[in-house]
Design a protein around this nucleic acid. Structure first.
Length: 688
DNA sequence: CTGTTGAAATTTTTT
DNA sequence: ATTTCAACAG
């Protein structure tokens, strides 16, 4: 081990437990890492240590929760290796379960009957295909309403990922759909056939086929043999199917390292189960468990408070997070009158910190549901404070972007019914019935677009049809770069867009952005795969290489904030009904998960933490309630005993505005409009 | 068949 | 506010 001694110096910066984990030999290893305990540093050092000790980087598999986490870890490990002048990391296998599955299946999928050029459907595509199949089966017109496509997809996904029987999944998670069990079964069977016929894999299939590949008598050992070391991050958020994949990759746990924190399990709605991490030592005899408890992230008072929040949870791996830091401000619990006052308060403090030298990107506003930040976004936009929103509606999910990508997708896979129908419906005179027939024709012709040339379009489509067909044939045969293909589709599509949507100008600008970004991809297939697996979060993401000097505030759902940290964190809408979400309070498991979610939010903060609770909140619809305002209660996760660790304050209105209080009998919404007439106008822009 | 209009129902988090 | 479905005119 030529570099062991210099690496030792670097390892010396770790605490004893971290070092034990980083330099563990090759028996199964479970690292239980509390929030802010240097989990990433430990993993990074472990990767570097392995490579410095002669493990071939190309035989290391690093599974992370997001592509971003993977890139960050590889970057830091590479850095360490450079310092000890050891081997380069080179071609380590890093990425999400789904991304790695794609790579493996493109290469070895043939062994389980997959064509190498399969198409990947994202969540929305899966819903659409399921909906197509549903109408074909005639399940749409029944006396009682059939579950919505989104619900159907959730049910399907759960049975696959949790490996549960349909009845069981329905009883546990979708009891109101129990009546439909038989129809759902028929639907799912037809859906599976349909995907197979069209060469389509959805997210769940990527895992299913990976599992099948590993279980295959011939291909299994070959794929397993690719890796000497397997490291899995965020193990508490893996599901049953993923845990099987891990098992098949390393049945005895040799070379296997998993890292996680049961107190931060927040993805059970995606069928993740905390049992994976709890039972790990049972599944892999001789597991070494290392627990990281020294917190390096948060100030003493913040850690004190978050420890009390999570102490009220039921949990099994007990950790006592401690820190050497005592100093710091206590976290604040801020009571606000309403949403607007909350936005005022948050912005005021963001600006104060900013003036004191804390960059905007070192500050984050966190919330439970994507729409909780709507008003804040409008206010930020109005004051020209730059921000970046993670989670929620993605750029890729907007109708016009989906339309444009559908051109490329149909050219890539002419059997893709979802892309095809979407395009056909754009043509005037073509409705669902003709679209379905045309897709059937295409399917029978083995995907040859020429099959459409024989078709006589109805009068309204006569002018457009030849151009439409010509474009698609051109794209299908095209070997131009991807940007040029996007350009051709955009030129054809622009007038249709203008006729179909409001705010055409801003949508057209989005498509220009899309054309720019297309230039980054080597091939059309590459681009479509990336778009499905790792879509850009917002149009800002597409705007080109990030400027080092540009600074923006971070807005994020709590889920998307996982693994990240900021100097100042503002948790908004910390009221019962939002945190915990009303949706999740039907059983105690749901409430416990919401508690962990709240805990994740609080533990993102390094120096300043603000928890805001608006007393009055707006809800869009509630049966039998005409009044659209409700009175909120502080979140149940901050009972009196825990509150002792918070500083209390009341967000008084913005002193600068000096607006008179609203009249008692005047509806609040109207008063708000009068005070700030531009807010509503700005809100409208949000939906573009 | 298509395209439009209206009414009823629904409500989160994401690879 | 959005999605879904039914009714109806062309």
């Amino acid at each position: 081990m030529p570099h062991a001694s210099s690496l030792d110096d670097l390892l010396g910066r770790l605490n004893p437990e971290q070092r034990r984990a980083a330099t563990h030999a090759d028996g199964p290893l479970l690292i239980v890492a509390g929030a802010g305990t240097g989990k990433t540093a430990t993993l990074v050092h472990r990767v570097a240590w392995l490579v410095a000790n002669g493990v071939d980087p190309a035989r290391i598999l690093l599974l992370t929760f997001t592509r971003r986490a993977s890139a960050e870890m590889l970057r830091r490990a590479e850095n360490l290796l450079r310092q000890v002048q050891a081997a380069r990391l080179g071609h380590i296998w890093g990425g999400t379960f789904h991304a790695i599955a794609t790579r493996l299946l493109r290469r070895w999928g043939k062994a389980v009957g997959l064509p190498p050029d399969f198409t990947i459907h994202d969540r929305a595509d899966s819903e659409d295909l399921l909906s197509v199949v549903r109408t074909e089966l005639g399940l749409a017109k029944t006396d009682k309403r059939f579950p919505k496509k989104g619900t159907c997809t959730d049910i399907y996904s759960r049975t696959v990922n949790a490996r549960e029987k349909l009845e069981h999944a329905l009883r546990q998670h979708f009891p109101w759909c129990l009546d439909w069990a038989d129809d759902l079964r028929r639907l799912f069977e037809a859906y599976v056939d349909r995907k197979e016929a069209a060469g389509i894999l959805d997210y769940d299939d990527l895992l299913v086929y990976w599992q099948a590949l590993l279980a295959d008598a011939k291909a299994g050992p070959a794929v397993r043999g690719l890796f000497d070391r397997v490291l899995v991050d965020e193990y508490q958020d893996t599901n049953a199917l993923q845990s099987e994949i891990i098992y098949l990759l390393s049945p005895a746990g040799k070379g296997l390292t998993v890292v996680g924190d049961d107190a931060q399990a927040i993805y059970s709605f995606r069928a993740a189960t905390v049992r994976n991490i709890m039972d790990f030592p049972k599944h892999y005899p001789d597991t070494t468990v290392v627990t990281l408890e020294q917190n390096y992230r948060s100030s003493g008072p913040i850690l004190e408070a978050t420890n009390h929040v999570i102490a009220l949870a039921r949990r099994r791996y007990t950790k006592n997070l401690w820190s050497e830091r005592r100093e710091g401000q206590r976290p604040a619990l801020v009571t606000c009158e309403d949403d607007e006052e909350q936005a005022e308060y948050v912005i005021r403090h963001i600006l104060e910190h900013h003036e004191a030298g804390v960059a905007l990107r070192q500050q984050a506003v966190l919330f439970r549901a994507s729409h909780h930040s709507m008003l804040l976004e409008a206010e930020l936009a109005g004051r020209k404070i730059p921000f970046h929103k993670y989670g929620g509606l993605k750029f890729i999910e907007t109708a016009h972007v989906k339309d444009l990508l559908a051109f490329l997708r149909l050219a890539e896979n002419p059997r893709d019914v979802v892309a095809g129908s979407r395009l056909l419906l754009l043509v005037p005179g073509i409705g669902p019935v003709k679209a379905r027939r045309l897709m059937a024709v295409l399917q029978e012709a083995g995907g040859k677009l020429d099959a459409w040339a024989a078709w006589t379009p109805p009068a309204p489509a006569a002018g457009l049809w030849p151009k439409f067909l010509g474009l698609l044939q051109g794209l299908a045969a095209s070997d131009e770069n991807v940007a040029a293909q996007v350009h051709r589709a955009r030129t054809f599509y622009a007038p249709l867009l203008e006729a179909k949507y409001d705010y055409a100008q801003s949508r057209l600008r989005d498509l220009e952005q899309l054309e720019l970004i297309a230039g980054r991809y080597r091939s059309r297939r590459r681009m479509l795969t990336e778009m499905a697996l790792d879509p850009p979060n917002s149009s800002q993401d597409l705007a080109g290489p990030p400027q080092l000097d540009d600074d923006y505030l971070v807005l994020s759902t709590i889920h998307s904030a996982k693994g990240l940290e900021w100097d100042a964190v503002y948790v908004i809408h910390a009221a019962d009904g939002n945190i915990p979400s009303d949706m999740a309070t039907k059983d105690s498991d749901g409430v416990e998960e919401e508690r962990r979610l709240f805990y994740v939010a609080l533990t993102r903060a390094k120096h300043w933490l603000y928890v805001c609770c608006p007393l009055r909140y707006y809800h869009s619809y509630r049966p039998g309630v005409s009044d659209h305002y409700g009175m909120a209660q502080r979140t149940r996760f901050l009972p009196e005993a825990v509150l002792a660790h918070f500083e209390h304050s009341v967000a008084a209105g913005d002193p600068q505005a000096g607006a008179p209080a609203a009249d008692e009998d005047e509806p609040q919404g109207l008063a708000a409009d009068i005070r700030s007439p531009s807010v509503r106008r700005r809100m409208k822009r949000y939906w573009r």
